[in-house]
Design a protein around this nucleic acid. Structure first.
Length: 804
DNA sequence: GTGAACTGCTTACCT
DNA sequence: ACAGGTAAGCAGTTCACT
């Protein structure tokens, strides 16, 4: 039969001794389809010495007892050359490793002969299958198949005979279910007291205590924890869930569910093949996986990919939701939850609290999934994995896919000792930052290079194999490396393809009016941007397959060269260059349109390099440095014609300053930039100080947030947040590496650190007002005024603050 | 013996 | 566990000067 299905998830297994790739899909009508592909053979590559191809081929063929089925000679590109590789096809996936272990002893480097190296023996079978067929979650497939009878939870199970990926933008009809659990600790053991589910047509809470729950709320009271876990499994299965959504469920909810299930003897059979949940080992946290039912921990994607772009200091569900959805959690302290459960009070609130969490997870997923689908299609991998990838991994998987489609062999991941060796090489010079002209400036235009590093890598053919390999080529400024002109490099052509695809999509966007199609195109171009921006950093990453520190260093050197050229060109044309950082340039006192300048500038730039107009600002300010001479880089504020402030680097945008100091600085900047009103600014500072002195500030506005980035015993210096963390631990609170420490500075004797106190343990009367005035409120705002020509003494005098 | 000046550690930012 | 460039605070040390 012929079908059109949308691919969601894959794995591989053995059925009756045969290796089978299983594809979990949905058809056009929302029916679940499991396709079994028995045609795919586990394989890896051997690179023999040129003269020994036939000899090595025969030797491998003789290993049929170890699972070798067949050996083929295949031409593949490797280091700018086309080489004869031996593709070793094995009976079972487990044979790949067995055979490779025999072949590796024939490597010359290991004292053998005939073999140079082996490749692609560690990539899981189903992932390789997806790479080779260019299938990622969200991709539609035209398939020919015949029905098979196997005991899976699906509308159709079929043997796959033919598969063709097709161009289709539609998002399939999916059964998405978000969940969340609440726990309490009893005798040192965590116990699940509530579980909530949220989907478009189910909002349900399972809870272990009776109460007068509202009639319109779907609450099931299940007093026994074992029964609750069984019900958890039942609901997920009954709902025919495709995507099970959670927040930090890899590291928290599923761990506890698994612990409790095994303690209470509940089988977590929620996969489409009715198997149990497996924990897949990953770098830091393992992920809970089960076939067909795709568990997406949306926290992982947010932390890895979105976090750098978010404003929030803390990566909690509440903070992330308020930033991305404009909605947040129901406020309920942990103690309140325990009390609700123990004293059977506020149980309704507990149920609502639990359900709200699931709702937020559902809505966040709804927002982020379309973007994730596009990433899946670019790297040709399942969303289970893609949603957990970091930038580096996204770049690498894209290169692996590109290697496959353009007949390159996929390089191996470096071993531990190679990584260590690479790390010893130290750093290279990065982007250029011009010291800003301090003070306030009018009519500022900001330009930046469009995707600077990706376009440099593509334009100058920067790639591991094109480095210093040809006589004639692109010469890197300062460094003198040469990249070939005659042969296209692997990484450079991969990134060029991405850039050109993105340009095509942007062109289509200009012609498209229809909203839903625009949204898809927008997601596509954003996903491509994410992957191509990761490529430069990846090349300098010691753990990367296509590591090339010289390549990254060269890209940075070209970047420095062209930003300096642009500054020079602007200066020659009579523009006043205020500031520049890596790929952006600020010019001031602009009197006329800059279109002509832009055009002339671009005419000078080679290849894909291009500068663009980023924005116009009616005023802006750069400040002197606190220490040393000159003005501070990476710290400024701009105001546009609609009076929107754009603040970078200043205390206002740093989480490790208290909110009162941050707010005061913003108000000062607003007064100065909007109306150039210095005396209003001084009044703002003075008001903040007054409020502090009178104790008329919210204690919460005095809290400083700081991340505990390593375990406590690794610290060499006892800085305030370390001392506060130690106090919190001594007082019995759970704090560890990765916790955000919230503390204030209390009055008393000793250093600032000695007086750092966890926020939970203080009231307003403990606060060291003098510290907050002199170390939090004044310095950030003073810096702004100093840039306006007010002296430090003058300000202190006007504020009536004593200086020691 | 004291305080200024410097150094190193640490965090969080910018591109 | 994608990169380098940068500011700044505080702890701890050094060093000039009394």
């Amino acid at each position: 039969m012929k079908l059109k299905v949308c691919f969601l998830d894959a794995d591989s297994t053995e059925i009756n001794g045969k290796t089978v790739v299983r594809l979990y899909c949905k058809d056009e009508y929302g029916k679940s389809v499991i396709l079994l592909d028995e045609r795919y053979k586990p394989a890896f590559y051997v690179l023999p010495e040129d003269s020994k191809v036939d000899v090595v081929k025969k030797r491998i063929e003789s290993l049929s007892n170890f699972g070798v089925e067949h050996v083929e000679v295949e031409a593949k590109k490797h280091n700018l050359e086309e080489k004869k590789f031996l593709k070793v096809l094995c009976k079972a996936h487990s044979d790949v490793n067995k055979v490779r272990n025999i072949v590796k002893a024939w490597e010359r480097a290991r004292g053998g002969s005939g073999v140079i190296d082996e490749f692609e023996y560690t990539i899981p079978l189903h992932k390789k299958y997806l790479l080779e067929n260019c299938i990622g979650t969200g991709r539609w497939l035209q398939v020919e198949c015949e029905e098979a009878s196997l005991d899976y939870r699906a509308d159709l199970v079929a043997k796959l005979n033919k598969l063709t990926p097709c161009e289709e933008f539609r998002v399939p009809k999916l059964r998405m279910l978000a969940f969340d659990i609440e726990t309490v600790e009893e005798n040192g053991k965590k116990k699940i007291i509530a579980i909530s589910f949220y989907s478009k047509d189910m909002k349900k809470v399972l809870i272990s205590k009776r109460a007068e729950y509202p009639k319109d709320m779907d609450v099931e009271v299940i007093e026994d924890e074992r029964a609750m876990l069984k019900r958890f499994v039942e609901i997920i299965n009954e709902y025919q869930t495709d995507f099970l959504l959670g927040f930090a469920t890899d590291q928290y909810d599923f761990r506890i569910i698994q612990e409790r299930a095994s303690a209470l003897g509940v089988v977590l059979g929620i996969g489409k093949d009715k198997s149990k949940i497996k924990f897949v080992r990953r770098k830091i946290v393992s992920s809970a996986k089960t076939f067909g039912l795709v568990h997406i921990d949306i926290f992982s994607h947010i932390l890895n990919i979105l976090a750098p772009r978010l404003q929030t200091e803390v990566m909690t569900l509440g903070a992330i939701s308020s930033e991305l959805l404009g909605d947040t959690k129901i406020e309920m302290e942990f103690e309140e939850i325990i009390e609700a459960w123990r004293k059977e009070k506020k149980l309704v609130k507990l149920a609502e609290y639990c359900l709200k969490d699931s709702e937020l997870v559902y809505r966040l997923s709804d927002l982020l999934l379309p973007q994730l689908f596009e990433l899946c299609k670019i790297v040709c991998q399942p969303i289970f994995d893609v949603s957990r990838m970091t930038y580096g991994q996204l770049a690498e998987w894209y290169l692996m896919k590109y290697a496959n489609e353009s007949d390159y062999v996929i390089l191996n991941s470096p071993k531990f000792d190679v990584i260590a060796e690479r790390q010893r090489r130290g750093v290279y010079t990065g982007g250029y930052v011009k010291e800003p002209i301090p003070g306030i400036h009018e009519n500022i235009v900001v330009f930046d290079f469009r995707s600077l590093y990706p376009s440099i890598i593509a334009t100058f053919n920067i790639s591991p194999e094109t480095l210093n390999h040809c006589k004639d080529g692109y010469v890197v400024p300062e460094l003198g490396h040469v990249f070939c002109k005659s042969h296209k490099g692997f990484v450079s052509s991969a990134i060029e393809k991405l850039i050109l695809e993105r340009q095509e999509i942007k062109k289509k966007l200009k012609e498209t009016k229809q909203k839903s199609e625009r949204a898809i195109l927008e997601n596509m171009q954003q996903a491509i941007k994410t992957v191509s921006n990761a490529m430069y950093g990846m090349m300098a990453f010691a753990g990367a397959r296509w590591y090339c520190a010289e390549c990254a260093a060269s890209a940075a050197a070209f970047g420095r060269h062209y930003i300096k050229e642009m500054i020079k060109f602007a200066t020659e044309n009579g523009y006043k260059v205020l500031y520049a950082d890596t790929d952006s340039m600020f010019i001031g006192d602009v009197k006329a349109k800059v279109d002509k300048f832009l055009e002339a500038c671009n005419a000078h730039l080679p290849g894909l390099l291009k500068i663009e107009f980023q924005g116009f600002y009616k005023r802006g300010i750069f400040m002197p440095r606190e220490t040393g001479i000159g003005s501070a880089k990476k710290r400024y504020a701009l105001i546009d014609e609609k009076n929107n402030l754009l603040i970078r680097g200043l205390e206002r945008v740093r989480g490790d300053w208290c909110r009162l100091a941050r707010r005061t600085q913003e108000e000062v900047l607003d007064a100065v930039l909007r109306k150039k009103d210095v005396s209003a600014a001084i009044k703002i500072i003075s008001r903040a100080i007054d409020a502090l002195k009178k104790g008329k500030v919210d204690l919460k506005d005095l809290v400083i947030f700081e991340l505990l980035s390593k375990s406590l015993n690794e610290y060499k210096v006892k800085s305030p947040h370390i001392v506060a963390a130690k106090k919190a631990i001594a007082r019995g609170r759970p704090i560890s590496e990765g916790s955000v420490i919230m503390y204030v500075i209390a009055r008393g004797a000793g250093t600032v650190s000695d007086r750092a106190e966890p926020i939970e343990d203080v009231t307003m009367k403990d606060i060291d007002i003098d510290y907050y005035i002199k170390k939090q409120i004044i310095p950030p705002s003073l810096r702004v005024l100093v840039a306006m020509g007010i002296s430090e003494q003058e300000l202190y005098k006007k504020l009536g603050v004593e200086v020691e």
